[in-house]
Write a protein that binds this DNA or RNA. Structure first.
Lengths: 160, 160
DNA sequence: TATTGTTATACTCTATAACTATA
DNA sequence: TATAGTTATAGAGTATAACAATA
C-alpha cells in the first residue's frame, strides 16, 4: 500500500485515555464482526482442547476428508478447502512425515498421487475426534441443543 | 487467530474442474467448521466490496473504535482486539502514514499516545461504512431480517 | 497444450523478547 | 519495578510463478 500521503490536520485530543473502550452500536449489528469474534473464541477453544495433539483445524479437516475419501488427490483437497495446490504440499508433507498418511503414485495417471490414512493415522484421528468433541461442547455450553442446531443451520446458509 | 488475508479468487478459478469430494456427515454438525466456512465467505464478500479502498477488517474496526473513543491508547485497542501491543504498531503506522489518524504524546503521562482520526480519516471511514453496508447486505441476502438478527444474537453468545 | 505435484519466493499477520523512555 | 510504545526476529499461512513429469 502507498504510505506517502500527506497527513491532514490533527483533531483535538483533549480526552483522557481511559481503560474502557466504547464500542459503536453498529458493530453489534455487523454479521462479519460477529463471525470474526466467534471464530476467535472457536480457535481459542480448539487449541485449548487439542494443545498436546500437535494439530490445526486445517489438518483435522484434511484427515477427515482423507478417511472419507481414501485415495483422494491433493488437487481435490485443495479445491475443497479453497487453498492453492502449493499450500497443500506443506500440510501433506507434515502429515506424511509423522506417519499419519501415505501418498502413492496412481498407475493409471502417473501425475496423480493417491492419499490415504495409515493405521496410525486412523487411530490418531479418532483421538482428535474425541478432543474436538470436548471442544465443541465447551464452545456451545451457553446454548441449548436447539439453539446450537439453529446457529449451525443459519451459518451454513451464509457459508455456502 | 483471525488473519486479514486476501481470499484466493485465482485459486478457486484455477481448480474449477475436479472430482467430487465426499464430506463426512459429522462435519456439517461441527460448529467450528460452520463458523470457519462462514468466515471464508465473509472475507471474500468484504474484499469484493472494499477491493479498491485499501483496507482490511482489522483496520476498519480500528478506525471505528478510534472515532468512538477519540484519544484512545494503543494498548487499549490491542486489548480490545485481542492482539499483542507490537502488532498494533504496524497497523497504526500504516493508518498514520496515509494521513487517516494522528498520534500525539499525552502530557499527563508521556508514555502514552492519544490516537484519533483526522478529518480525512473521518471522511474515508464514512466511505468504508457505505461499502461495508453493501458487503453486509450481500452476505446476508439469503436470510430474512429476522434470521439475520437471530444469527448475530447467537454468534455473540458464542463469541463473548 | 494442459494438468499435478513441486519448489522458490514473497507478503501478511501474529507472537515473544528485548530495548527506550517514562513513571 | 512497572508500563507504553517500539524494534527485531521468527514462524505459520497463503499467494504467484516457474519447473519437471506426465498426459
Amino acid at each position: 500500500m502507498g504510505n506517502d500521503r500527506k497527513p491532514s490536520r490533527a483533531a483535538s485530543l483533549e480526552f483522557a485515555a481511559g481503560e474502557e473502550v466504547r464500542e459503536p452500536a453498529q458493530m453489534k449489528n455487523y454479521l462479519g464482526y460477529a463471525i470474526r469474534r466467534a471464530q476467535m473464541r472457536a480457535y481459542e477453544s480448539f487449541y485449548n482442547a487439542l494443545r498436546d495433539l500437535e494439530t490445526t483445524p486445517s489438518r483435522f479437516t484434511l484427515m477427515l476428508l482423507m478417511r472419507e475419501n481414501p485415495g483422494i488427490r491433493s488437487v481435490d483437497l485443495a479445491r475443497k478447502l479453497g487453498v492453492a495446490r502449493s499450500g497443500m504440499v506443506r500440510l501433506i508433507d507434515d502429515l506424511e512425515g509423522r506417519g499419519l498418511i501415505v501418498r502413492e503414485v496412481v498407475k493409471a495417471d502417473r501425475r496423480n498421487q493417491a492419499l490415504a490414512l495409515t493405521t496410525e493415522g486412523r487411530r490418531y484421528l479418532r483421538q482428535l475426534e474425541r478432543a474436538v468433541g470436548r471442544h465443541e461442547s465447551a464452545l456451545t455450553d451457553k446454548l441449548t441443543a436447539k439453539e446450537r442446531a439453529q446457529l449451525i443451520k443459519l451459518l451454513w446458509r451464509v457459508g455456502t
